[in-house]
Structure formats: C-alpha cells, structure tokens
C-alpha cells in the first residue's frame, strides 16, 4: 500500500464510517436481536436463580430478575421484582467501525467479511450487556439488591473488571482486531514496505 493509497484508505474509512453509523443507528434494534437471544441463553445457563426473563424492547434488553426491589429508585417489573434495561448500542457501536474498515480496505469478499465480522462481534457485545446487568445488580442498585445476589467480594471485583473491560475496551478493540485478522496479507504487505 503506497503512501497515497494509505491516505486514501483513511479518507475512505471516514466516509464509510459516516454511512455505517447512519445505517447502524436505524438498524440497531434489528442488529440487537441475536444479542438478546445470546443474553437469554447465557442467563438460562449461568444465572437461572437471578434472571427470570430476558426481553428485547427495541434497542434495549430488559433483564427481569428474581430479586426484590430494595428502594423506589430501582426499576421494577410485576410483583416488585428488579428489572434492568441495558442499551445495546453502548456495546455495538464498534460494528460500524468494522464495516467502515472492511469496505475501505476494498479487499475481496467484503460482503462475506461483513457477515463474519458481525457474527464474531456478537459474543463480545453480549459480554458487555451481561456484564453491565451484573454490575448493576452487584453494585449499581445498592446494597439492598446486592445482598440478595449472594455474590462474594471477589465475584463483585470480577464483575466490575468484566464490566469495565466490556464497556471501555471490547467495543472498539475487537472490531480493530477482527479487521487486522481478516486483512493479514494486507498488513504483511504493508509491513514489508517502508514509508520513505
């Protein structure tokens, strides 16, 4: 990739990013559907005592828990049970970044790479959603709710780390890593050339 091509690549990424953000914003509820399914699957397998139901409402995934609301500031479902709405977009905004990078690279099989990239991101996005839910019930909703979860001190620390990692690192780093892995040949070719 010569210097001019690299500058052109960066400009193309910006242009595609604007388009991809627009599409993602309006399609985010549809794109979140598999995340809701994965979140429900994980909740059934790993958190059956804590989660009664997982529902999708547009861009939000609602966890209806078996925990009782300890104060009026916590959102409740029927029966005074704690429910938690998670905005999926906070964890999926890396998808337009990945789409922009794939489309700007103009490598073969762009459509296939977009689909693979979308599928690869899903578990990491689900991680973010579930970690935020766990952080809410373990810390955010206060000691009245946290005491019902039965989490130990080290489990709360692990949840806090998983939430921070899922919110601050994974949404943007995973798309970049996936793109680099998909374009290894481009990168190797790139590394062989010198800028000057």
């Amino acid at each position: 990739m010569p210097s001019g091509s690299f500058a052109r690549f960066v400009l193309l990424v910006f242009a595609w990013l604007a388009c991809a953000l627009f599409v993602w914003w309006f399609a985010s509820a549809l794109l979140a559907w598999p995340i809701a399914l994965l979140a429900e699957l994980v909740s059934r397998l790993a958190l059956p005592d804590l989660v009664q139901a997982v529902e999708q409402h547009g861009d939000k995934i609602t966890f209806v828990t078996s925990l009782h609301a300890a104060n009026a500031t916590v959102a409740t479902a029927a029966g005074g049970l704690v429910s938690d709405d998670i905005d999926v977009r906070h964890f999926t905004f890396g998808l337009p970044l990945l789409a922009a990078l794939i489309l700007a690279a103009r490598a073969p099989h762009r459509g296939r790479n977009l689909l693979i990239g979308y599928a690869v991101l899903l578990p990491f996005q689900t991680w973010g959603v579930i970690a935020e839910f766990l952080e809410d019930i373990a810390v955010g909703f206060g000691p009245g709710v946290a005491s019902q979860t039965g989490f130990s001190a080290w489990q709360r620390e692990a949840i806090a780390f998983a939430y921070q990692f899922g919110a601050l690192i994974l949404p943007t780093v995973v798309p970049a890593v996936v793109w680099v892995l998909m374009h290894r040949r481009l990168l190797e070719d790139f590394a062989r050339r010198r800028a000057v």
């Binding site: 953000l21 949404p171 943007t172 990168l187 590394a191 062989r192 050339r193 010198r194």
Partner: peptide
C-alpha cells in the same frame, strides 16, 4: 458515546499501521 469512541480507536489503528510501515523489512524479505 459513539462517534468519538470509534474515531479514537481509528486513530490508534492508523498510528499503529503508520508505525508498522516505518519498520525495516524483515531479513527474510
């Protein structure tokens, strides 16, 4: 929440790619 998060990571990626570009060729090449 969205635009600047993506732009900062794009900045990291571009800086890293430019740095890789300045590295000398591997011996094998």
């Amino acid at each position: 929440l969205y635009v600047w998060q993506a732009l900062i990571m794009l900045d990291v990626l571009v800086v890293w790619l430019l740095w890789v570009r300045t590295l000398p060729r591997p011996e094998a090449d």
